[in-house]
Structure formats: structure tokens, C-alpha cells
Design a protein around this nucleic acid. Structure first.
Length: 421
RNA sequence: GGAGGGGUGGCUGAGCGGUUGAAAGCGGCGGUCUUGAAAACCGUUGUAGGAUUAUAUCCUACCGUGAGUUCGAAUCUCACCCUCUCCGCCA
């Protein structure tokens, strides 16, 4: 959510920044209703002030036995007027927050302007895509031959976009989870295992709601939402809290399953493990001081890259252009891993700085050491990494001519094996 | 699921429907004392919105959340949320 006062005082700059990411709305009505709200607020406060002082006077009169029925009657009508004004204010505020909750974040000035993913900009590459002396297979062919992923039965017991991991496939999933958590905790991230279902306030805090309800799985009675990423519960850990500057930065890492409706992606990636309704992910989340957040974004991205380097998987880092960024982000790097089976780079991690967009929604503040008052923290998060897609990358990059998969060195202790065959 | 007890400031914990934004203690901060520290003593110590040139002053709101009663509610009523104890059920 954007800052009402900032929007009010910088409408043109805000509108310009949002136009860069393709946002169309107008702020005219918002500004007008904001003016009305302030006028009403002032009126209500003056009336309340009068009521407070007179009510005290009534108390004094009653104690000394003076009849106060006349001013009591007058105050009754003042009370009615306050009630009416408050009702008007409430209506305006509801409309305003509904509007603001649906306005995306402003892109950072370093973000390239562009319309869609074709205008994202590559920042760096790491590793050399391997040359195969045979035709590399898709991961689903590799996995089915090795009998480590069962898509058919996944569909039978749940539906499309579900898979069953079996044997060394299941172990690979578990091994990656451990390798990633070990790596991140050794870099100073605190491990969290949060609830996988959260309430509406949490989903609103990180920006999934109200705009993206269609992408979430929902539990009825009692009402919960399945998390689409650990970002949601982990960022909301500090919702409505005032943190101490000396405790910042806070680094968390969390393994969780993630649940997504994938409502808008019919026909996309229908085969294989790339796009599932349920997938595992290790997430990185940071709470930092505003002045540190862009450095922290670089560090966060490097921490995610470290996993790919350990696994010796070639990748590139791109910065998303204004038109391709997520709703809440001010700047996003995507890490894309090389997939020989698809002959292209595919997203395996997305690392974003949200600045104070989420912290304002979720009311996560901090107090400067020795200073009065509070400020919003900056929040960041990134995948470190999506485990299902890492499985895909390992299968495709490490496949052998005989159909087996040689395991990356770093994974062998976790797998208690050198090869899947 | 059944029965009962609670939700007050950073923490503990008072609070008759009317000088309670809220006692007291702890913690924090400042000071006196001390070579220094501790102890003791004194003072201070929430958040947000608004008025004003102003971190000084003033106003408003906030005692789980939301409605209600009242001239006036932390204090009364209702609903919801959370939490604790006991019983039942259960991985």
C-alpha cells in the first residue's frame, strides 16, 4: 500500500511512476475524497471536544446537585451529529483503502521501463550450459524412466498439476530441502517452519489479497487460505509489531509447501514439474532498515545464487522491467536456471525488494536507537530455491546417455548416493 | 465438542460510569551522589491523526475486535477473535 500522505503530496510523481509499470487508474477521485475526509474529521473532532468538556461539566453539576437536563438534551443531539459524520468518514475510508489496496507499488528508479517479459534485462550469467553428445530428454521422460516421479497417479489421487515423488525422487526433494536450509542457516538466516494456512489479514499484509483471491486455495469454515509462498506467514511474523533498530536486519529462511491455483495459466507447462498446484520451496525473507534495502536485495539474490553454484547449475540473473514486476515489488531479480530439455533458461527464484509497501499494509515498523517515533521497515524476499524446479534442473542437466542421473557433488552426502539409476 | 477463568501501556499488575492516557512495581532514559560502577534518591518514559512556522503548545482517537446503551464507557450489554484450566475426542 502506498502512503496516503505521500500520494497526496506527490500525485504527479506517483502517477508517473505507476504509469511506467502500466497502471491506469486516476487519483483525482482519491484526492477529492481525501479532502472531504479531512474536513469531516476536523468537524467531528471539534464536536467531540465540545462533548468531552460539557460532559465533564455535567458531572460536576450533578455532583453539586444542579439540574443538567437541558445541556444533556443538547449533548444528545451533538452525539447524533457526531454519529452521522463518523458514518460518512467510515464510508470514505473504506473506499479509500479499497482503492489503495489495489494500487501496485512504485518501481524503483533503477528498474528498466518495459511492457512485458520480453523487455527484462539480463544482468549476469554463471556457468556454461553443458554440451551433450546425445539428445537431452525432458525431465518428465527422465523421471518416468527412473520411476521417481509419477504424474499419472498424481492426477488420479488429486488431479492435474499434482505429482507423486517416489523413491530417489522423494529423497531428492528431501535432500534439496536440507541442503538449502543448511546453506542459508549457515549464512545467518534463522530457520522458521510456519503454518501453511493463514488468515485473511496475513494475506492482505503481504499483498495477495484483495486483488489476487483467484490465485489462492481457500479453506472454508473456518476460513483460511493455503499459503502460495512462505513469504506470507514469515513476513506476517512481525505484523503489527514495532521492531528495535538494533535487531535489524532480521533474516529468516523457511521451507514450506506452496499452493497455487494457477488460474490464469491453462495450457501452460501442463507437462512435468514446472507448474504444480503444490510445490516445495525454501524461502528467504528479510526485514531491514530503509537505507539498507537495496544492498540487502543484492545480498539476498547472491544467497539464492549460492545454491545453484553449489549444485553447479548454469543460470542467469535478470532484472524484471516495470511491466513484468509483481504487484507488491519495487524491484525484482529473477534467477533463471538452464534447462537443456527445454533448451532455455527458466525461472527458479524471484528476489524482490518491497520497500515499505508490505510493511505499511502489515504495519511492521521499527524504532531508531535512541530516537522517538517509528518508521516502516523494508521487507524483501526471494526463493532460495523452488525445490521442484531444482529437481527439474538436476534431472535435465545431469542426465547421462544411459538414462541415469549423476548427482552433483554437494548433494551426494544428502542422497547417500552418487547416481540415480 | 462440553464447563468455567481471562484479554489494560516494553513487561507484571490496579482500576467505583464522570480531573484515568490510565495507580503501583519492574525495565528503559536523564540527573544527583561516586575516582568509576552498584545501591539509594529525584525526574522522565506509548502510538496514530489533526491545528500551528515549529520534535514547544493544543485538540482527537486508541485499555483484544466490532456494534450498542449513556450527556459521558477501560468500567454496563451483545457478537466475534484470541488465550488459560478441567472433561471428552484425536495425530
Amino acid at each position: 500500500m502506498l502512503d496516503i500522505k505521500f500520494v497526496r503530496d506527490n500525485v504527479d510523481a506517483v502517477a508517473e511512476a505507476l504509469a511506467r509499470r502500466g497502471f491506469q487508474g486516476s487519483f483525482d477521485e482519491f484526492l477529492e475524497s481525501n479532502r472531504r475526509r479531512l474536513a469531516l474529521l476536523k468537524e467531528a473532532e471539534e464536536l467531540r471536544n465540545r462533548r468531552n468538556t460539557v460532559s465533564q461539566e455535567i458531572g460536576r453539576m450533578k455532583r453539586s446537585g444542579i439540574d443538567a437536563s437541558e445541556i444533556m438534551a443538547e449533548m444528545k443531539s451533538v452525539g447524533e451529529r457526531i454519529r452521522l459524520i463518523e458514518e460518512d468518514i467510515r464510508i470514505i475510508e473504506d473506499k479509500q483503502s479499497e482503492f489503495l489496496l489495489n494500487v501496485p507499488n512504485m518501481p524503483h528508479r533503477s528498474v528498466p521501463v518495459g511492457r512485458d517479459e520480453t523487455e527484462n534485462v539480463e544482468i549476469r550469467r554463471w556457468g556454461e550450459p553443458r554440451r551433450f553428445d546425445f539428445e537431452p530428454l525432458n525431465h518428465w521422460d527422465i523421471a518416468e524412466r527412473l520411476d521417481i516421479i509419477d504424474f499419472q497417479r498424481g492426477a488420479k489421487i488429486a488431479g492435474s498439476r499434482f505429482a507423486v515423488m517416489k523413491g530417489m525422487g522423494a529423497r531428492l526433494e528431501r535432500a534439496l530441502m536440507n541442503l538449502m536450509l543448511d546453506e542459508h542457516t549457515s549464512r545467518g538466516y534463522k530457520e522458521i517452519f510456519p503454518p501453511l494456512m493463514v488468515n485473511r489479514a496475513s494475506m492482505t499484509g503481504t499483498g495477495q489479497l484483495p486483488k489476487f483471491e483467484a490465485e489462492l486455495f481457500r479453506v472454508l469454515d473456518p476460513e483460511y487460505y493455503l499459503i502460495p509462498t512462505a513469504e506470507v506467514p514469515v513476513t506476517n511474523l512481525h505484523r503489527e509489531e514495532i521492531l528495535n533498530e538494533l535487531d535489524l536486519p532480521i533474516y529468516y529462511t523457511a521451507y514450506t509447501p506452496c499452493f497455487r491455483r494457477e488460474a490464469g495459466s491453462h495450457g501452460k507447462d501442463v507437462r512435468g514439474l514446472i507448474r504444480q498446484h503444490q510445490f516445495n520451496k525454501v524461502e528467504l525473507v528479510k526485514f531491514v532498515r530503509p537505507e539498507d534495502s537495496y544492498n540487502e536485495l543484492e545480498g539476498l539474490t547472491l544467497d539464492a545464487e549460492a545454491i545453484l553454484q553449489k549444485l553447479n547449475l548454469p543460470y542467469r540473473v535478470i532484472v524484471l522491467c516495470t511491466g513484468d514486476m509483481g504487484f507488491s515489488a519495487a524491484k525484482t531479480y529473477d534467477i533463471e536456471v538452464w534447462l537443456p530439455g527445454q533448451d532455455r533458461y527458466r525461472e527458479i527464484s524471484s528476489c524482490s525488494n518491497f520497500e515499505d509497501f508490505q510493511s505499511r499494509r502489515a504495519d511492521i515498523r521499527f524504532r531508531r536507537d535512541g530516537k522517538k517515533g517509528t518508521e516502516y521497515v523494508h521487507t524483501l524476499n526471494g526463493s532460495g530455491l523452488a525445490i521442484g524446479r531444482t529437481v527439474v534442473a538436476i534431472l535435465e542437466n545431469y542426465q547421462q546417455a544411459n538414462g541415469s542421473v549423476l548427482l552433483p557433488e554437494a548433494l551426494r552426502p544428502y542422497m547417500k548416493a552418487e547416481v540415480i539409476e
